[in-house]
Structures are given as C-alpha cells and as structure tokens.
Amino acid sequence: MGRSGLILLLLTLGILHPASLVPLQPMCDQSVMDKYIQDASTIESEIEQLCRTSCRFPEPVTVLDTRVNFPAWKAMDRSRQASEVWRGQALLSAAVLQVKRQQPAAFLHHLEAIESHLRSIREILRGHHAQAAAQDEPSSPTLSVRTVKKLVNVYSSFLRGKVNLFVSGACRGDGR
C-alpha cells in the first residue's frame, strides 16, 4: 500500500483529519515524471502484446490530440498550457472509464494503472496551482480513438509531451 493508500485508509477510519494534511507542494523531481513515462511505455508494450489483432472498441472514445507545436507551446502563457493539460487529463480519464466498461478483463489492470496515473497528474497540476480550463478559451483538437493500442499510445504521448513540458516549464519558472 502506497502513501496515498495509507492516507485514504486513515481518513476512512477517522484517524487522520483532512485539516491535518499538508498543502500540496509543486512536484519538480524529474524522476517522478520519468517514472510515469516509463510506466506508460511498459503498459504500451504489454498492450502491444495483448493486441496483436485490433482490440477495437464498440464505439470510439474522444481524447486530446497530443501533438505539440513547440514554438506555439513556448509562446503560450502558463495558464493556457495548464488548460491544455487539464483538458487532456479530463478527456483521457473519461475515455479510460468508458473503455473499462467496454473491454474484457484482460485490460482492466492496465486501465486501472492509467486511471491512477491520471489522478496523480491531476494532483501534480494542483500542486503547481494550475487551474482547469476556462469555458471561453479555444479548444485544442481532439481525436477519436477506436483501439486500446491507440488509447495507450495517446496516453503515453500525453505524458511525454504536454504534461512533461508543462511540469518542467513550471519548475523552471517559465510561466508567464
């Protein structure tokens, strides 16, 4: 049981009160992001083995287009970058939840790991005081994904790209 599991258990038992929890601190240890990225690559490899055929979904799921235009990304202010990452995290979380209902148990472990990592990304964003997207901001492009392989590929690309760029930029103080 990890630290977060222990805290959840203690909260549930009433031993630890939420007021006694320390406020979130920005996560600037690159090894943490590297671990998430490595785990995503491992999941990607395992799904590749499980899905030698297509592993298609009965209906497509919508995810954020993870391609990054680096000059445009660098020109964005930190709040817009945060909006991109929040939106990507939200779309991926919703897609994973939808897929969990559609796919056989063979993928459940992988999908639950992705779900857990996406919750951690949400906490990392909160630690950096990143705010969720405002409704009037222009939306980033999305993709319709029809296979487990593509969903995991998008998740892995999201971590390596926009999430890693946002966190490393926030840690360097690149926010505008």
Rank of each mutant, 00 (worst) to 15 (best):
V32E: 06
M33W: 01
P58K: 10
V32R: 13
D39T: 09
N69E: 14
N69Q: 12
Q30P: 13
P58L: 04
Y36T: 01
R56K: 12
R56V: 09
E48H: 12
D29P: 05
T42Y: 04
P60I: 07
I37S: 04
I47E: 03
V63F: 07
E44Y: 04
T42K: 10
C55D: 06
C28Q: 13
T53S: 15
A40T: 05
Q38G: 00
D39L: 07
S45V: 00
A40F: 04
C55Q: 05
K35A: 08
S54W: 05
I43A: 06
L50C: 12
F70C: 03
C51H: 12
Q38F: 04
E44V: 00
F57I: 10
V61T: 08
V61F: 03
L64N: 01
Q30F: 13
S54K: 13
R56Q: 11
V32M: 10
S45W: 00
C51W: 08
V68Y: 08
Q38Y: 06
E44L: 12
I37C: 02
Q49I: 13
I47C: 02
P60N: 08
Q49T: 13
R56W: 01
S31E: 14
T53G: 12
S41N: 13
R67Q: 14
Q38N: 09
R52H: 05
N69R: 11
E46R: 14
D29T: 08
D34Q: 11
I47N: 03
T53E: 10
K35S: 11
P58V: 07
S54F: 04
R52M: 10
V32T: 14
E44A: 01
D29H: 09
E46W: 07
V61P: 00
